[in-house]
Design a protein around this nucleic acid. Sequence first.
DNA 1: GATGAGCGG
Length: 299
Amino acid sequence: MPVLDKDTDEKPSWADLVEEGEEDHIPPISEVLNGDTKIVTEFKRNEDGKLLKIVRTFKIEKKQVSKTIAKRKLWRKFGDAKSDGPGPNPSTTTVTDDVFLILTSNKEDLQQDNDDPLKKLGQSTQKIVQCRICKGDHWTTKCPYKDQLEVIQAQVKEDEAAGAAGAAPGAPGAAPGAGEQPAASKTGKYIAPGLREGAANRRGESMPRSQRDESATIRVTNLSEDTRESDLQELFRPFGPISRIFLAKDKITNQSKGFAFINFVHREDAARAIQSVQGFGYDHLILNVEWAKPSTTQQ
DNA sequence: GATGAGCGG
């Protein structure tokens, strides 16, 4: 900018004045290129006023520098480095190794990511999920053997409790980590106590179904769009304790879909609710209430 | 006229 240039030319900064005063007879820093070596010669005055010549030799690695970056060498320096020559001043600047950024969104990388799973699947379009129980291609929670697993877990828990109480003579695996190995079959595969030969079938004895009890769930349809969960709560509370209310809503718009599920604690209460609220006029609409079918994901 | 959502790995 011409205006700035004028200013700086006419009124050098205090720092520059001091520098100039000190440097009156000091030759400027110079760089000489000699093949792949750069020799930088600098003169300095030490504390005693003696002139020192500092020669630094740099080995230049041949690199491809883009034109845009090379142009920066021509930029006018400012501040304390105003009088420095082009390029980095070795007395104030350390040039380190290049740091390369690894861009993970690289197209090639993405391509590779796509390739790998395909290889794994052996060109099939199979789902990638694998059941931990039976190795089938469904989630573990959807496994047909899941109930059995529940029994195993329940049995293990029971045994742990029995062992901790110090009772139950002959109960194996008193506590995990007690140095005792769990009982193993001839094949070395672990078999839960409840499933071992001679064990009584105690399926479902101690553990309640992990799934929500849907036997006391009713479905309410023909709700007006501005019905809220709290409204349903008020409407059905008189019949008995409610464990859950689900009002179907559009995930994105949050708009009510006009039907809801009410989980009562007691099935009798649910039955009475159906009896009473069925055909009930609510918000200019007539409600429809009936037993809910188990949800799609219920087993 | 509509039978929920989302969690894992």
